[in-house]
Design a protein around this nucleic acid. Sequence first.
DNA 1: AACAGTAAGATTGTTAACAATCTTACATTG
DNA 2: CAATGTAAGATTGTTAACAATCTTACTGTT
Lengths: 227, 227
Amino acid sequence: MTVLNLKPIHKNRTLRANVAEQLKEAIISGALPPGTKLVESQLSALLGVSRGPLREAIRQLVDQGLVESIAYTGTYVASITVQAIQELYSFRTELEQFAFKLVWEKRADSFYNELDLQQKKLTKAIKDNDHSAAIFEELELHNIVYKYCGHALLQDTWQRLRGRLHLYFTLHQNAHNRAGPKINAHDLYVELAKGDDLNAMLNHVSDHMQQGYKKVELLVSDIESAN
Amino acid sequence: MTVLNLKPIHKNRTLRANVAEQLKEAIISGALPPGTKLVESQLSALLGVSRGPLREAIRQLVDQGLVESIAYTGTYVASITVQAIQELYSFRTELEQFAFKLVWEKRADSFYNELDLQQKKLTKAIKDNDHSAAIFEELELHNIVYKYCGHALLQDTWQRLRGRLHLYFTLHQNAHNRAGPKINAHDLYVELAKGDDLNAMLNHVSDHMQQGYKKVELLVSDIESAN
DNA sequence: AACAGTAAGATTGTTAACAATCTTACATTG
DNA sequence: CAATGTAAGATTGTTAACAATCTTACTGTT
């Protein structure tokens, strides 16, 4: 039999999964801002779904840290705190450094090609002024190293953070009305990821994250002044 | 008003939470071995609970990696694979090193005291030949650094791994019919955690984890030979 | 005998009604 | 008027019946 490339079947067909996907999208796109109360009866009516699968979907988002739940009281889109942002960035630094350490000796052409391809997608989104796409493509670029390092647990953990990270980016962008990723911000990242100096890469990850944090720091001041 | 020390109220009172707790206990204690099919109707009857909250509890365990779910087909207690064990140990090494880096400058008497206290509990459990308690107390000892490092996201991630780790320990113990943690295995760990040499601590964490992995390696061969 | 088709049973997914809890507004009391 | 008690409404938690899907065993065909 010749090689047969079949597309994966979308076994996403449970309502629970669809609802979770839509809710997540609504949150990370900023349509449901932090603090918004998620009333089950309203949402289930809105989505044309009963409360059972909706509740299961909400629980999933709780586990991803995108919503917070208080028993018998309500679930709310997760609020942003200074500490949460700091933690996310510091933790993410560790994860991505670990990922590069793992992937370093395993890198191959497919890895390099995907980096280049993804960088092009990111650049295009920025040039097109498509802020929303730019955020997605930036996360996709960082996703590559996790995908290739072959560590399922690490990738899982990264995916869990990714939603919150996306939300922060979106909020920052909405608050300051432009300012997606800069056009050349990832040139060095890709360069080093294809290069021979692991330590340089690790240091850059650290720097890159700190720069990212500085960017979101503006959001932090907004939050503090809002209290 | 004088200082008022009230115990936290057990807001664990939703069935979902209670069921999740009991199911988790049943799994990590080995009562429900890997591969066991969790039939909702059976479990709900057994627990005297309807399927709604039971399903929500099961979803929670899925997110913790303790059970695996296939839509319309069934949920099963997570199987053990060599890769999963390796990943867990390598990832845990990174997490705990990060935790020690964070806590190092913040350490205070309460931290040292808790280490000593917990080491005593662990030693007692081992002396009493209470294997199950020894596993718990060992995990509690490692839990301390996560508790004191003040990084909620890190602690959360650790908690998520802890269940699976507990399960591996239990399985290993059941398979080889003794061999909880050795009586002095954590002396150096506590010593270094109270000492002044961060690098020595980080190296020891790495060694300690590798020793732990070696121990569970026996379990690995059991798995492989079972296939 | 091997294979495809099919129907019965079991199990998960979903729904809608019911129960428990919380919040809010209002009345009561000192 | 402040503080406490109370009742109404809203919302989450729970249940049990119904629908969709999968598995398995059986039948028939080649």
